[in-house]
Design a protein around this nucleic acid. Structure first.
Lengths: 250, 250
DNA sequence: GGTCATTCAGTGGTTCGACCAATTAAAATA
DNA sequence: TATTTTAATTGGTCGAACCACTGAATGACC
């Protein structure tokens, strides 16, 4: 039975050989570690099922204390990126099984600039979900939501069109009365705030959005679910196409 | 300047007086702490903006070591529930502003039994999103996904029907090739694992699901997006109705 | 009296070294 | 050979210390 710590054991070779993690600068140490391991997992350098070196070893390799490394591992555990098993070891999980939007965000931001594949994912997901949300909103909305929509439509000349657009989407999500939808839409909007500039850089798209805001507001006010769904679907598919074109041409 | 630790200072009174956190049993200590603080935030006992006692104090109150408390706080930080400011303190955040699905899950699980409104939200959101995902999957799937679906369909007599159902949804999400959709579906599935029992308690629903798995697999294998969308839509609307009925009648 | 730079106690961040507890596999035993 | 025992490995907790940042009290200066 071991009684002493850090028995100066030679590198264990029955686990993945060497994952080349860099020693780290002095400040937000554990955050740097989180980023490093997160990136190695997301890029596939660390694959699902692989066992990380023991904490004592890994800490030494990173040139940090074990407690600091453990704080980093705890964060990665919450993000669903690693599985920590008492008495056994730390195992890499499949990051696509993660439900952490933090991880998704890390995937999106891991490349400089805009990753066309990720933006395409976002725009597709919006196109898939929002038409039905618009229909739900048309049915379940109350006067308060209609008032809010009209406010945005009327005030939007004083409002950047991207902000107005996000506000319209957000209000429609609220009007749908569905908690999950509100949550998901909040996340979509946070991402679209980054990427919407590619779409709204063209003036004709801005005009189209203004018209869209008027039309969807009217459809929801009239409780016309079918029309709301159609309007939303059309504008999102148009925006999808134009945004991808703008990104590829840039 | 302080040179010694734990200067036996009297309880500081310029922060929230006493949040009554219970000392904790010996195993998964930091997880118990996470749960306690999480609950206190979600129930509103700890309000946004409030400052937690200093780590050294809080650790003493919980009867745990400071390192253990810090691991718990790091997890809460990732969940977006607290804001840790070096040299200042730990502040409670507004959990409704969080984009962490972990937090949403904690909110859903905080009541005993099943909250009909939450389940209705979940089933509506599924009905809104998944038909389009099925259509996407029919177009973008490759052979690997078809093989996986057939495996599930054939093996599912040995598999609890709920697990088979979740696996089918998950495979379809992967086949869609849309990262956002995969993440969102993972989350839906984790919730539905809790609530699906209300639906599958009826044998006729289990049979319907088996047929659904066969049909959607076939439609996707044939790249028939229209049929896949229709099949998914029908089964989800049926499941929505039956599940809500089962819950209300229970 | 008001403004600014300084000081310093308090707080989170990191380090060290140790022991506890769960797991696994090798070794001893039936 | 099958089972039990043992010991090494690994994550979990502990406690004590020092480092680094923040903000408010202090005091010099205008």
């Amino acid at each position: 039975m071991r009684q002493k710590e850090d028995p100066k054991g030679e590198a264990v070779e029955n686990v993945i050989s060497n994952i080349k993690l860099n020693p780290v600068s002095r400040s937000r140490l554990h955050e740097d570690i989180v980023s490093q391991i997160q990136n190695k997992i997301i890029t596939g350098e660390l694959k699902a099922g692989e066992k990380l070196p023991a904490e004592r070893e890994l800490a030494m390799e990173l040139n940090v204390n074990r407690a600091t490394l453990r704080e980093a591992l705890k964060k990665l555990e919450v993000q669903g990126l690693v599985d920590i098993r008492h008495g056994d070891g730390v195992y890499v999980k499949d990051f696509l099984e993660s439900e952490s939007l933090e991880v998704l965000k890390a995937m999106m931001y891991r490349e400089e600039g805009a990753d066309p594949e990720i933006i395409d994912s976002l725009l597709s997901a919006r196109s898939a979900l929002l038409p039905e949300v618009a229909a739900m909103a048309a049915i379940k909305r109350d006067e308060q939501h209609v008032r809010k929509l009209k406010e945005i439509v009327e005030a939007k000349s004083n409002m950047p069109v991207l902000e107005a657009d996000l506000a319209v989407h957000h209000t429609i999500a609220r009007a749908s009365g569905n908690y999950l939808v509100i949550f998901i839409l909040n996340f979509f909007n946070k991402l679209f705030r980054e990427y919407g500039k590619f779409y709204f850089s063209a003036p004709e798209n801005e005009n189209r959005s203004r018209k869209f805001h008027r039309d969807i507001c009217e459809a929801i006010a009239k409780r016309d679910a079918h029309k709301a769904r159609r309007i939303m679907k059309d504008v999102l598919e148009y925006a999808h196409e134009r945004t991808m074109k703008a990104i590829i041409d840039r």
